[in-house]
Nucleic acid binder design. Structure first.
Lengths: 343, 343
DNA sequence: GGCTTTTTTTTACGCGCGTAAAATTTTAGT
DNA sequence: ACTAAAATTTTACGCGCGTAAAAAAAAGCC
């Protein structure tokens, strides 16, 4: 055996007995060469470990296999989890995904997109910051680079949107809460960064009205991505008041609820559905930690897998059709109600 | 104004009135050219937006500015948080960081390192999986690519290790717990993936003995990265037993403690330091959510900032000294005790 | 076996930039 | 203003691969 170092495709072509252009063709698409040549190449590939220089490849190809995955805040386990799924699907689809987080900062989001441009990506999967995003910047980006939006929608931008159906979340939680006890008041941030929050509030009001109940929206102050702390402080403020709007609180999202529950615990309030309880608390997202809150959180779950799969499938279509789809589609997956102990 | 598209460095050099090699030099290090030329280039840079082709740059440079940041599990907020810090520092230091997660899988860890090789990184910041890592593979990688290990140490590998001082964590929590009540039993996974866990157990035993107490180690079953669930199930098992080894439980890490607390809550046990409480629970890491557990978790905090800063500083030194340091250093930062309600 | 069709080889060029060497210009020092 | 040093320009080549065109070989068909 002579495992001498292969320096480039030229040398590798030599040792495998195939011409370099054919080898190049093979690496672009192994099925584009005759079966027998493919086998010969793959045999050589086992004897000599050679991998084409990725920089040279990307430089000369008009289109790379790079895919950018951009999320607004990676330290939020919700995004970490969905990023994990999407990454996996991208690899299965033959892409080279790279993960980016804007960490809540619109400037960083813009910078990520800028540097992404330079990577000639086949496509980008973008979960934008939302309200804080530089919309015109993102719009321009989407015009140049095939982009799928996921999780939070920016009207009209990108080739498609894949996310969860906020109305479905609300309808299920509100319906359940109304059937099982006092109708819920809605607990949310006054200035939510995420557009889903607005959709949820609107859906809440509509659903409550359709059930013949008076909607009650509680807005708490606070900015940024420290939702737990915001929920906690908001809960303290709320619980100080002489009378609650309802003894059932429906939080806009699980991270707020986690903070809310911690405040309740500290105040000595019992949360749950028993008669001996002071409060019921429910929420949305099925955050990875919602199972471990005290009490465990009744919530509505995203279909992580469906969103991830569909996002990557749509991206694949988009790439294969040359970066344009006939029409911008919006795919919304329904929620799944998760009944736990908090409501 | 003639904002015509600049196609390459040649054209940009033309419009800025400078020769291409000098422009190239400028982009490698803006301070390597005369002040006046630098200003002329930067003027042109404002009129024409041009950025050198990153692929061509990286192909020809022997060393890129790329830095890989590899963590074992990005959906763990602890790693997400430290990754965020390190990423920021890398950018400040002029690197181009890219974030990777092995998601608990040694094969993926190896694959990441393999593809990282192809990126000719200036250096890599690696938090290895630990026990599950393919040690010889990582060792080989460290020989080829300048690598700094952080968070969890693999003896002798990499140019340096930067992490937290597990003994300091344990000493502070054990000391506090012993002073304030019954000496703690240590609660951990039977087969911890992370080498820090072993160091913590050993430090626990040593510290207890030095204080004249009998160490009690509780080992719970379970594999993988679902620590909360493992802690929860372990707690249920433990609490079923007729008698606890101690009414003070010191968990090896916060994620186990989060699960432990959720089990206690479900069992109706009061956790805290009051006389009316059944149990005290403390832990280590100051996980981002430990403030919001019920009760809030007494724990020992990593110095995230110090670890991040030192890691990147060490990497910078390593890169500047051509990939070799005179000796392998191990830097350990002490913990900071965070007293909350659980113990 | 002779034909057409598909695949491969040969040949050659280009991508955008790094970089070395020699020639030239600019700067600093006195 | 003169000289040595520093910076820049010129010139030229190479990196590793994509890709186009033409020639050659292999495969498929009756």
């Amino acid at each position: 055996m002579a495992p001498r170092k292969i320096r480039n495709m030229e040398e590798f072509a030599a040792v495998s007995g195939i011409s370099r252009p054919t080898v190049s063709k093979y690496f672009n698409d192994p099925d584009s060469v005759r079966r027998s040549t493919r086998e010969r190449i793959e045999q050589a590939l086992e004897r000599f470990d050679y991998r084409p220089n990725i920089f040279a490849m990307n430089q000369n190809r008009k289109l790379t296999k790079n895919v950018g995955i951009v999320v607004p805040y990676l330290a939020d386990p919700f995004f970490a989890e969905i990023a994990r799924n999407i990454e996996e699907k991208c690899i299965e689809a033959g892409f080279r995904p790279t993960l980016y987080s804007a960490y809540g900062d619109p400037a960083q989001e813009a910078e990520i997109l800028d540097s992404l441009r330079a990577l000639k990506p086949a496509g980008v999967l973008l979960a934008p910051l939302g309200r804080d995003s530089d919309r015109s910047f993102i719009e321009k980006f989407c015009k140049d680079i095939p982009t799928i939006l996921f999780d939070s929608n920016l009207e009209g931008m990108g080739a498609a949107f894949v996310g969860s159906d906020n109305a479905s979340f609300i309808e299920q939680t509100v319906d359940y809460l109304c059937r099982s006890g006092e109708p819920p008041a809605f607990f949310e941030m006054r200035h939510p960064a995420n557009p889903n929050a607005n959709k949820r509030r609107i859906a809440y009001i509509k659903k409550m009205e359709s059930l013949g109940f008076e909607p009650q929206v509680i807005k708490v102050d606070g900015r940024g991505w420290g939702f737990e702390e915001i929920g906690r402080q908001g809960a303290f403020k709320l619980l100080e008041q002489p009378k609650l709007p309802s003894r059932t609180i429906l939080c806009s999202n699980d991270r707020l609820a986690i903070g809310f529950l911690s405040a309740c615990y500290e105040k000595g309030l019992r949360v749950g559905l028993g008669d001996d309880c002071d409060l019921r608390v429910a929420s949305h997202d099925d955050h990875p930690f919602s199972k471990f809150t005290c009490p465990s959180l009744t919530t509505a779950a995203h279909d992580y897998t469906a969103v991830s799969n569909r996002s990557v499938e749509t991206l694949t279509q988009l790439v294969e059709s040359g970066g344009r789809l006939s029409a911008r589609t919006e795919t919304l997956f329904p929620a799944r109600l998760i009944l736990r102990s908090s409501a």
